[in-house]
Design a protein around this nucleic acid. Structure first.
Length: 384
DNA sequence: CATACCGGGGTCTGCCATATTC
DNA sequence: GAATATGGCAGACCCCGGTATG
């Protein structure tokens, strides 16, 4: 089917003609001279070309396709020196899936090795992705977003094993869909690597006295879709740090990890530690006790996800609006909303004379729709 | 009926370093 | 020994609504 035009394109664009050949020699010579000039102080070796020349017809081809060749060269220089490539086939293939010229050019610019994949390979891989996605368009949008996720591995067998493995964990198609959408790299990991993370999570569960490690791993993964593209080293360090800095018991930690705590496990170690320290300082300066900090983090670990600056301005914004730290500690979910959103709401509420002390702050933790509806009512009946 | 509680959902790559393969 | 394959890293929230409850 599509393989035929692919092959034709391949042939028509890479005929090793005489002109091309002589160019290659010149190019090779120049490259070799440059190479030696740069390294002459340390090298006194042969005059054979050390680096193959770039494939001129390939470069022309890519230029015609609108590929950013400079970018491609910077990322994967070796690809541009290959004699046989499949850029035309790839382009046709992707076009057939609904990708625009611009998207295709962007894909090749950012991940040049894509043009080394055969049509058969592409079709097979696409089919496997299509088992999880409803439409080609969804896949195209992910390739546009992150070409590397799709093209980095040439091992379709491994992809198949990954899908089988993830399914065997009890993840449903719906979960796989979310996983592949959010963290497509997971599927290009070696199955071994994914297994390591799952086993690591299961071990953690057992160490902490849990009795359903499989369920634990599954829960953590579906709560934090990035887990599988992080190193076990990183996740382990975060868990250790949380345990130590919060002085958690095993069962407390277990509950935290399979609960809302899963969401912060993939953060970089330094970032998480740093956020913890700033939060601690900030809260201490606001008169909170150590227990308050622990409670806050256990009930709302996402507070550690928020960067120091954001968190600081957000808290200040709430306090300035007449809300107390005690209220925030009781309803930490208000911190979920953007500072801008909170600020706007506080302003609107002040206009209608809303009393946070009397009515609480739950109103800040509601959807736009609900908030707007509430405001309408408050305007109509400002007293109650 | 309004609100409080609670859980779910979207989204997140592009680069560098090292290992492996050809 | 090059090109490829794979692992790892830093980066850094916000929003919605079903449903129990009172």
């Amino acid at each position: 089917m599509a393989a035929v035009p692919g092959v034709r394109a391949l042939l028509s664009f890479h005929q090793p003609g005489v002109l091309l050949h002589s160019f290659c020699l010149t190019r090779a010579l120049l490259t070799s001279i440059c190479y030696h000039r740069r390294l002459c102080s340390t090298t006194t070796k042969s005059n054979e070309p050390q680096v193959n020349p770039e494939n001129k017809s390939l470069l022309e081809n890519l230029n015609l396709m609108g590929v950013d060749v400079k970018m491609a060269r910077q990322r994967q220089p070796g690809v541009l020196r290959k004699v046989i490539t499949n850029e035309q086939g790839l382009a046709r293939f992707l076009q057939g899936k609904g990708a625009s010229r611009k998207v295709i050019a962007g894909i090749i610019s950012r991940y040049p090795r894509a043009i080394t994949r055969s049509i058969d390979h592409l079709e097979q891989r696409w089919e496997m992705w299509r088992n999880i996605f409803q439409t080609d368009a969804e896949i195209v949008s992910i390739l546009d977003r992150s070409p590397e996720s799709f093209f980095r591995s040439s091992d379709n067998g491994n992809l198949e094993k990954n899908i089988a493995f993830l399914t065997s964990l009890g993840l449903l198609t719906k979960d796989l869909h979310r996983l592949l959408t959010t963290a497509p790299r997971t599927f290009s990991n070696s199955t071994e690597l994914n297994k390591q993370m799952v086993e690591f999570l299961e071990d953690i569960c057992l160490e902490l006295g849990g009795n359903n490690p499989e369920q634990f791993a599954k829960t953590v993964i579906s709560r934090n879709l990035y887990i599988l593209i992080r190193s076990t080293k990183r996740v382990k360090k975060n868990i250790d740090n949380l345990k130590a800095s919060l002085k958690l018991s095993d069962s407390e930690l277990l509950a935290l990890l399979q609960g809302p705590g899963a969401e912060i496990l993939d953060l970089s170690n330094e970032y998480l530690k740093n956020n913890f320290n700033t939060l601690q300082k900030k809260m201490a300066s606001l008169g909170c006790h150590e227990a308050d900090i622990k409670n806050l983090i256990i009930s709302y670990p996402m507070v550690l996800y928020i960067g120091p600056d954001t968190l600081s301005t957000k808290l200040d914004c709430l306090l300035k609006g007449g809300i107390t730290m005690k209220q925030i500690l009781e309803k930490p979910k208000v911190l979920d909303y953007s500072t801008q959103n909170i600020m706007g709401r506080i302003e609107e509420l002040q206009k209608v004379g809303y009393d946070f002390q009397k009515n609480g702050i739950n109103i800040l933790d509601s959807s736009r729709k609900r908030f707007a509806a509430k405001i309408v009512k408050l305007v109509a009946m400002p007293d109650d």
